[in-house]
Design a protein around this nucleic acid. Structure first.
Lengths: 342, 342
DNA sequence: AGCGTCTCAGAAAACCTTTTCGGCCCGTTT
DNA sequence: AAACGGGCCGAAAAGGTTTTCTGAGACGCT
């Protein structure tokens, strides 16, 4: 085919070009640019100027081939659309981007076959490591122990305890949520949460119960498991108010549920936070700041999870692999929906 | 440092290993595995079995170095957290992932310096092309014409008309939204939208006006520009109802605004959709399906934008670059908040 | 003068794969 | 019988960089 009429598309300049312009060999040019000592200062300067003039950028592909390390990692996510993957991905990208590591993004769409395909493709590209990001906190199958590169699991831990997993501390999240409500003077606390098939729902409920038990208290009724939706929040609240009209706080399993809860509370004439305090989980900005009043919520620090995973992978590549599941603390973000009882 | 105690980390097998096991030269092994014709069928079979047994995966780095094409592209996004980048990114990842192209993800955090840094790093890795994903539909500065690889701009067009940009048709989106409301028999249509500094707000308003003009109608009052928030939706609706209590449809600049609008309509006793139809833009699932009733919204087909960008980049790499801004159609997703006037 | 030492530059190998070209063997044609 | 052609395989180069090793020149010392 004839040459396209587009822009220049000239070949990138190579080290040979630089060396020729500087009047030295490629070996010397390489040493000059990489700060090796075997070069006279004056020669080094000449090489640097030549590289500058040709705007030389070393070919990382060639460098990777030679070094056996490419300076790339694979980021394998299960559902890109899910809002949990994104902050983790940002944290990882952030931690790597600061250094000299580039990230291959792959979305497996939750499909095992596709995941296998991506793993193979990434290994073919000789990535130095892999981060596997799940979409739920439930344990997931390991990629296996026989991979030629280190792997770190983020958000969804691996089922294999020999793998390293970085996850938010869901039980702790339940505890600090209740601790905050207790600090507000609430004692009749109900818990409306999502699908009991999710570890996140069960773990948070367990943490909430434990924190209440520590204070010599118990939940108002049983935790109400259901769905992660506003609709369930509304329905559950209606039932709750019928049975326990004296509740003074509702801990919700997600910000979406919390919005449904607050809607029904307001419709039934309960003031938030004066009569009933409401809390959510996930700290999803679009929901927490748009609700009336703004919603207190537990942030899972997902960016930090991503950063920690990136850092762990980095040290594993360096030759010091850890293993086991590491729980990172969450934090309460206080807004208008919780306040001390007056 | 001593060898780490972790898993094997053995060197990946190379073509030489395969060739040795099969008792042939690397050249023959390569030809056998790549379906070249210069190999006897029996020999080919032996090589394939050897490769199988060693689970050989060709080193894409070496292949890239030789071929001058790496089979990688850079995806440069401005704000990863923004919900507009993600679907585009998914579409692109999808379109590439099907083939043999891997995607480097870089987030510039909206910072020009960081963007430059990433572009240079990506070029150092010899990507075959770049996709630049913006966070708003407003034009953005070009990366320049002198890059050694093709570039496609997605969502946010380049200011340089010589570049190729793939964007959703915001004006058309406004038109089809009004067309839908007209088809429902609505004639007194108001428009409450977001920050007038955004091209998306202005373009949609323009499209809406044009569609109404085609029908011999006009908006009820002027378009109400404000902020992309529920709060603005509520405030603007209050003002609207005071001045024009006979409005029978509100076209909202975003789903968030629409939620605020619907809240106030319901509080003031207007039924949706019987008395007033409400529409949003963006089709953000968490908002549209959780509202009461579920919200009709205009979907910008962002995944398709991403796929189209990937496809355009692919053909540009193949040597047939296009240029200019290409507008992709949006679509109306009908839910309960709009219905024919009875 | 001879020898050792030090500094700096270049040649060459290595990384892994693909492709081109040359050569060998065997069967076929003139 | 000689030439030829085709099928099959291997040697070698190429891609760009880094690193090691060798060598050349300069200098100081005996």
């Amino acid at each position: 085919m004839a040459r396209a009429t587009g822009p220049s598309r000239s070949q990138p300049t190579t080290l040979s070009d630089v060396a020729r312009l500087a009047g030295v060999s490629v070996a010397t040019a390489s040493k000059a640019l990489n700060g090796r000592s075997q070069v006279r200062a004056e020669t080094r300067q000449r090489v640097i100027e030549a590289a500058e003039r040709l705007s030389f950028r070393p070919n990382q592909v060639a460098r990777g081939l030679l070094a056996g390390r490419t300076g790339t990692v694979g980021l394998l996510t299960s559902d890109l659309e899910g809002r949990f993957s994104i902050p983790i991905l940002m944290g990882a990208e952030d931690a790597f981007g600061a250094g000299e590591v580039a990230v291959f993004l792959c979305d497996a769409r939750g499909d095992v076959i596709r995941e296998q395909h991506h793993v193979r493709a990434l290994l073919g590209r000789r990535v130095d490591g892999l981060i596997v990001v799940g979409s739920r906190t439930d344990p997931r199958p390991s990629l296996g122990r026989e991979l030629p590169v280190p792997v770190v699991y983020a958000y969804a831990p691996s089922e294999d305890p020999e793998d390293l997993s970085i996850v938010p501390d869901s039980v702790g999240a339940g505890r600090i949520a209740v601790d905050h409500l207790l600090a507000c003077g609430r004692t009749r606390i109900a818990h409306i949460t999502g699908d009991p098939g999710y570890a996140a729902a069960r773990d948070r409920a367990e943490g909430a119960r434990a924190a209440l038990a520590d204070a010599g208290l118990a939940l108002v009724g049983e935790p109400r498991f259901g769905a992660w939706s506003e609709g369930w929040g509304r329905a559950a609240t209606a039932m709750l108010l019928d049975r326990h009209p004296d509740v003074d706080a509702v801990l919700c399993g997600s910000d979406q549920i919390a919005r449904g809860v607050m809607d029904v509370l307001r419709e039934r004439g309960h003031r938030v936070p004066e009569d009933v305090a409401v809390m959510g989980f996930d700290n999803w900005q679009v929901l927490t700041s748009a609700s009336r009043p703004p919603l207190t919520s537990v942030d899972m620090n997902l960016e930090q999870v991503g950063r920690a995973a990136a850092h762990a992978l980095f040290t594993a590549i360096g030759g010091a692999p850890r293993s086991g599941t590491e729980n990172l603390p969450c934090r309460v973000v206080i807004r208008g929906s919780t306040a001390p009882l007056s």
